[in-house]
Amino acid sequence: MNQGLSKKSQTFLENLRLYLFSNGKDEKEINAIVEELEDHLMEAEARGKTVDHIVGESPKQYMMQLSNEMTTDTKTWVKYIIMILFGALSYSVLTNAVKGQLSYSLLEILGSIMISLIFIIAIRSLFKYVAANSLSKRKEFALFYVIGLLPIALFVGLFYSNRLIETPIFHFGSIGTLLAVLLTLVFLIGMSLWTKSWVMLIILALLVFPDFLFRYIDVGPESQLILSTIITFGGIALYLFANQKISKQSTNE
């Protein structure tokens, strides 16, 4: 698409998109301005100008100027927050329901919500920081790595504190569990229709399916581990591959 564009210009456009996205700007407006600037940069570069000539000395300041004029669309971010929060919840409900009846302690429920929110805020600030400051690839990678590990560390912490601290436990019972699973499925399908993307449902299905399978098929724990890894990650890889092929075809049209 933008083959003619220099690496520096491409990086600028990617960073701009990330910055505006992290600021919760309207998706359509983001696409419009990025396309317009891409067109401008192509023509400018063909005439021997560099990205500095267009953006000025401080890309960060220029991004802020654009951002200030654009509409903030809280809906986009609410969409992502709901997706992450309920995605985590759906995963927990489905995997636990496959193994038996559901029960959660108050600490688990509140803790999970807190961790999800912390993660969302952290990743959003990270996006903005990385987009506005040109960091080295190594530094960028290290930052993403740390933020990626953050929820895992927090969940491990929650897991152990849940053993130490006693809080009221909510037992769902068999009808409650069934209801929770049904609600989760309805929510997941609704969410997929709303976002017009089936990615969440497919990945969750692939994560849960092996556990479900082993309730009916009797295999040793080792083959269980191997089988579930193959099904889950093989499935996700296959899905991503197919998805990429489809999107490539649609851009080529």
């Binding site: 067109d39 000539h53 000025g56 100027q65 654009l66």
Partner: peptide
């Protein structure tokens, strides 16, 4: 379109600022 606009401004002598400035406006 955007690039034309920036070029015209430059032709008229407004060459002190960066071309991208027109887009927020």
């Amino acid at each position: 379109y955007g690039y034309e606009l920036a070029e015209k401004l430059e032709q008229y002598g407004f060459d002190s600022f960066s071309e991208g400035t027109i887009y927020p406006l």
